[in-house]
Each structure stands twice: as C-alpha cells, then as structure tokens.
Design a protein around this nucleic acid. Structure first.
Lengths: 159, 159
DNA sequence: CCGATATAGTGGCATATACCACTAAATTCA
DNA sequence: TGAATTTAGTGGTATATGCCACTATATCGG
C-alpha cells in the first residue's frame, strides 16, 4: 500500500472532517486579523441575519445542525467579549434571544471583508461552479430529511 | 428573508462544518456500540494501515491534515484505554510510533462492521456515485497543493 | 567535536462540540 | 385549576482540535 493511502478515501465521514480541518485552517488564517475564528464569524453572521430582535437559541442551533448545549458553549467567549448578547424573550420566559452587540456588528462587518477574500480564493482555486455545487451537496447532507433517510436506511444487501 | 436562509449557503467553510456535524452525528450513532467515536475509529483505522511497526506521529498527522499536537491530544484517550500504544523508534530518538494494541485491533475490527453499515447507508441515500465523487472532491480540498494554491491566490478583482 | 539550527513530541491553554442531568417555564389534559 | 409532560437553556464532563512554549534529539557548518 502506498504512503498516500488513507481511510478518508473510503469513509465519507473522515474525508469530510479532514477537508473541514484544512478549510478551517485556510479560512482562519485569513479571517484572523479581525480577531475572530472562522466558526465565530459564521455564527455571528448567522445571528446577524436575525437583526436587532435576535433569534432564540433553539432554532439557531437547529439551523446550524448543532447541539443546543454546544451552541451555548460556543457563545460563551462571544458574550464574554461583548460581541453577542442574550436577551430574554418577551412572550416565552424560557427563551433567550441572541443578537449582535454594536461592537459585535462592527467586528462582523470587519471580518466579512476578510471572509470575502477567503471565499473568493476558494472559488478561484476550486472553481466557482464546483464550489456552488459542493455547497449544495453539503447542504443536502445537512438536512433533517437526509438524517431521517440515513437513519431509516438499511445497508445494501442486494449484491 | 426566509427562516431557512443561512450563511452556509454562501460560505463553503461553514457549509462543510455543518455537514461534518451532521455526518459525525449519524456515523457516531451507528459506531457507538463499539465504544468508539467515529473520529477514534478513523484514527485507529489509519494507524492499523501501518501494521505492527506502527507509524511516526508526524506523517500520520500530515496525512490526516491535522496539527501534530492535536493528534497527540486525540491519542490520549486511546492510549489511556489501551487501544493504541506509542513505541520509540529504533533509529531516531525523537520519533514515537503509534500502533494498535491487540485490544485496539480487536476493537477496530468490531467497529469496522458498524462503520460499514454507516457507509453503506450513506451511499444508499446519497448515491454511491455521488458519494465517491464527493470523497474525491473532499480529498482534493485536503491536499497540500490545494492549500498552497489557496494561500497563493488573489481574490477576484474583476467586478 | 561544538555550537547553531531544524525536527518530533509534550503540555498548557483556548475554542468547538457532544451527552447528560438539572432548572425553569410553558403546555396539556383530566 | 393543578399535576404530568414537553420545551429552552445551563453547567459539568469528555473528546476534538489549534497555537504556543518548551524539551530532547538529530543534523549541519566550521
């Protein structure tokens, strides 16, 4: 077996994690001057979409395909640094809404320019067409329907 | 903006992380009866490829596109549980070689059957063709050449 | 051979992310 | 209405993963 063989050639799960590490590295390096990690920038950008009313954590976590408690933990450094704030919901006492602080909004915009560079490079190297196709496929994998189908599936037994 | 909008539709980095979380969940659920996480199984499988001489950590980390220290940390629970052992290299006093213990090899084989189910389901739901294509693209993203090209690239400036 | 440099790993610290147990608040239903 | 159940978040613990500083060993230049 050649030195370049690896389990990632057969396992989609390890392949995707490996690529995520690489891409995380590449994006982080470019976004770093803003002081944000790529993950933090993504999270803040998603929160920014909710505007000044913010968004409850539960649907935010669902959209991100992330465990609710994991989201809570990830939010910690951001609230600590005053970039995100959690405000109580007026209707439902259980709910907290995440929104960017003015400082957070400013940071996010700053990082946005850096991110744009990264995404531009990715498209340039990978091909904008394939890039969009890739995101589409990754989006498909991330749907609840895909998870449902996966869990319901039986392994192939025909051959 | 619709509730289903997200940054992952525009950002390949967040899209890949999101999909990795989903897939990690799905694979983990199936591999869990072996007592291994998907990441641990992947790592052990890669180590298994090296046979009884084991493999030095540095090239292992490089193959996995992982930081050397991160690999060291990830190995901790596995060595603690007696699944992997680090043996000194005969030629180079700095080098340690990772290899599976007999127990580790047994666990890995046990998990292999479970993993096979998971991979089979993925192929069934996603399509074996697209699955292979996806792994190929993910593999491309994970190459040193891709990283080099990315870092060397300039953002598009045409518009 | 010796000192300068490069290489492999380790350990500390920080973030990312999951599971579980627990609290509080809302909803259901008898 | 009041008890049972469901739902949203929190905090603890564990693994995953990166950066930095440090140690030990190897290699290189003179």
């Amino acid at each position: 077996m050649s030195e370049t063989d690896g389990v990632w050639q057969h396992c989609t799960n390890s392949a995707i994690r490996r690529a995520a590490r690489q891409l995380g590295q590449l994006y982080d390096d470019l976004v770093e001057p803003s002081g944000l990690k790529g993950t933090q920038f993504s999270l803040m950008s998603q929160i920014a979409l909710a505007g000044k009313d913010g968004t409850p954590l539960k649907p935010l976590a669902e959209g991100l395909v992330m465990d609710l408690s994991a989201l809570g933990h990830t939010l910690k450094p951001l609230t600590r640094d005053g970039l995100v704030e959690l405000i109580p919901d007026a209707r439902d006492g259980r709910v907290k809404r995440a929104r960017l602080t003015p400082l957070g909004a400013q940071k996010q915009e700053e990082a946005l320019a850096l991110w744009h560079d990264a995404q531009g490079r990715f498209d340039a190297v990978f091909g904008a067409e394939r890039s969009a196709e890739m995101r589409s496929l990754l989006g498909l994998i991330s749907t609840p329907d895909f998870a449902k189908a996966f869990r319901a599936a039986k392994q192939k037994s025909d051959d």
